[in-house]
Design a protein around this nucleic acid. Structure first.
Lengths: 350, 350
DNA sequence: GTAAGTTTCGTGTACGTTAACGAATGTATG
DNA sequence: CATACATTCGTTAACGTACACGAAACTTAC
């Protein structure tokens, strides 16, 4: 149990009266060692608390075989795409690990064409990657990928959002239900019990996603748990991005009273709301949204958005690579499953 | 400029028609190389964008000479001391870097006896440490340390709080003025323009510290900047920890009106306030404080504290070691100066 | 022109791990 | 008992860097 002086394979060999080659065979579970010596060496390894020197190990292995990681994420349609951020974090991590023998390859799929996901999967599995980073937006396809990866013993990390799958899987994600609850807390602080609340799902062509649903459910859960007896009204508005914001008569009535209004936008499009409110002469509103994109941040600065919740997408990508690498080199899976804290951003700490 | 294939010292040597020994001499600025070949090799190094393989470099050097880092922080008086957290982060980082050749030694000083800081400094400088992690609470002593460290060319990182010093220095800290502004934003959201605000400095034996002052000034700056014309009242209360909370007649009057009250506690002792409020029958209050200690978190859960601001002390310690190591091994100082974001904690994301 | 000194450079070994290669021993088969 | 074959193990050469050692070339002084 003496971990203070870090001894090497050489010392282990000496203690066991064998050569380093034999110790190495035991460490890597290779054949060619008698049961007796194997046991003896295993015992000594445990006793001494030996752990391999990663520097030396990687130095040796990096030249022989690079670790190949495939990244399958949604298409990046423009410079401001959300997926630029994880990509950036991934590239940063790879840069740090470059000389330690790692290489990556990006694959992209289209939300609207699930088969594009499956196709890329096929390519990935046919090319002997050592690890996969992807997302779980498409349920069936994610399950297919997971099953294949388990069969082929290839570790997978899902980014962004957690969804229940057939088998347990690794997620690096923010808890969206929790994020919704935080949003509830923040809005309620500003709006109070006498106000009116709106959950706005601004949908683009991809339709409503699992994280939108989870965020709304968390938001509602917050009020249900803490203010059940106050019967606070929460209205959901599903707004397709293509159309103009259609204020129905019913909605107009809701908006036209004197109550303070709290608006929770379940995705990154909260920056669309202030303009709409202005056009319709709706005042006394507070907005909570997601993600630190340029437009959102601008409105945070002006006070038109009160709070933003950050998912740290860049950090998610960075962590995914680092933790996969750690697992593949040290067999340490402790960081494959990470819950990103719900980071609250106001004007002053943006 | 070709950075894609990471080539080694061997390839550089071949390109320059010299041996690896000569390249090595150039890389380490050692003597024994003619000006002409030195220039030629330097040119090729620049051309190819060669960077040393840190794995191999550290593997070679770790055996020869460990990197020794001294940590000089306040005494840790009990299990719940704030300084346990940075210590924990430091130990975590050291564990990760252990086999790469690093060793640390903790030193502790007493706020009340500045000479205890100086004395430990003397010891540290006499023992040839490669780097120092400390804090800048004591102005004169911090300057003395900084001057010595510059003379002896030993890198120093200050944790927790930034203070202006004679020379520029490395800080891993939260911007306390900014944190105060965030607190202002949060409290104002809850209390509004018609409320009353209190800045409470709960002082222990160490007296008021620089970060308390900075936090208060940030808090006041927030109101001054955003609501100057509203003439919002902000009262400061300096409360020595030893005494009971003494509610003077003047204070009693301030507290006894019907206005909503916002209380900003400038350090980790916000957990003392709810009890005092209760004893004095003061209601309709909101509290914002600092640090995720056990007591604060318990009151956050019950709603008696609305927001806590986290300084991520463990992360500060972790980062300090990692960045010092990076500087000492790769000569990369880009991470020696870190601003810890002002992390906002509510019940739901604690 | 030779000895001594100086500058410039190549060679070799080590860091700890990995894995190929082959030597030694053991076992089976005729 | 000899040969073939399998099992068990030790030896050795890398990975890329760091640095000591000494060889070669060149300079200076007599």
């Amino acid at each position: 149990m003496d971990k203070s002086n870090n001894l090497g394979i050489k010392e282990i060999a000496k203690l066991a009266n064998v050569s380093i080659g034999t110790v190495d065979r035991v460490l890597h579970n290779r054949t060619g060692v008698s049961a007796a010596t194997r046991k003896k060496i295993q015992h000594i390894i445990k006793e001494t608390g030996y752990t391999k020197n990663i520097l030396a190990s990687r130095l040796k292995l990096a030249a022989r075989k690079k670790i190949k990681i495939a990244i399958l994420i949604p298409e990046i349609k423009n410079e401001w795409s959300y997926w630029k951020a994880p990509q950036k974090g991934i590239k940063k991590a790879v840069k740090e690990l470059k000389e330690q023998g790692i290489s990556i390859q990006f694959f992209h799929f289209n939300f609207l064409h699930p088969q594009s996901f499956s196709e890329k999967c096929g390519t990935i599995f046919s090319e002997a990657f050592d690890g996969i980073i992807t997302v779980s937006f498409l349920e069936k396809e994610s399950n297919d990928l997971l099953v294949k990866s388990i069969k082929q013993n290839i570790p997978v990390v899902f980014l962004d959002t957690e969804r229940p799958l057939k088998y347990s899987a690794n997620f690096i994600r923010q808890n969206s239900v929790n994020a919704g609850m935080v949003a509830g807390r923040l809005l309620h602080g500003l709006v109070g019990n006498d106000g009116q609340y709106f959950v706005v799902n601004i949908l683009n062509e991809d339709g409503i996603q699992i994280n939108n649903r989870q965020r709304e459910s968390g938001f509602r859960a917050f009020f249900n748990k803490n203010f059940k007896n106050k019967s606070i009204a929460i209205h959901t508005i599903n707004h397709p991005l293509e159309n103009d914001f259609e204020i129905t008569e019913a909605l107009k009535q809701l908006f036209s009273n004197e109550k303070t209004k709290g608006i929770f936008v379940t995705n990154a499009r909260s920056f669309l709301i202030p303009q709409i409110l202005k056009e319709n002469n709706i005042s006394d509103t507070f907005i909570v949204g997601f993600d630190l994109n340029r437009q959102n941040l601008a409105l945070l600065k002006t006070g038109q958005i009160s709070f933003l919740i950050n998912q740290k997408p860049e950090y998610q990508g960075y962590t995914a690579i680092k933790s996969l690498y750690k697992f593949l080199t040290e067999n340490d899976d402790s960081e494959l499953n990470v819950e990103i804290p719900v980071e609250i951003i106001v004007k002053e700490n943006a």
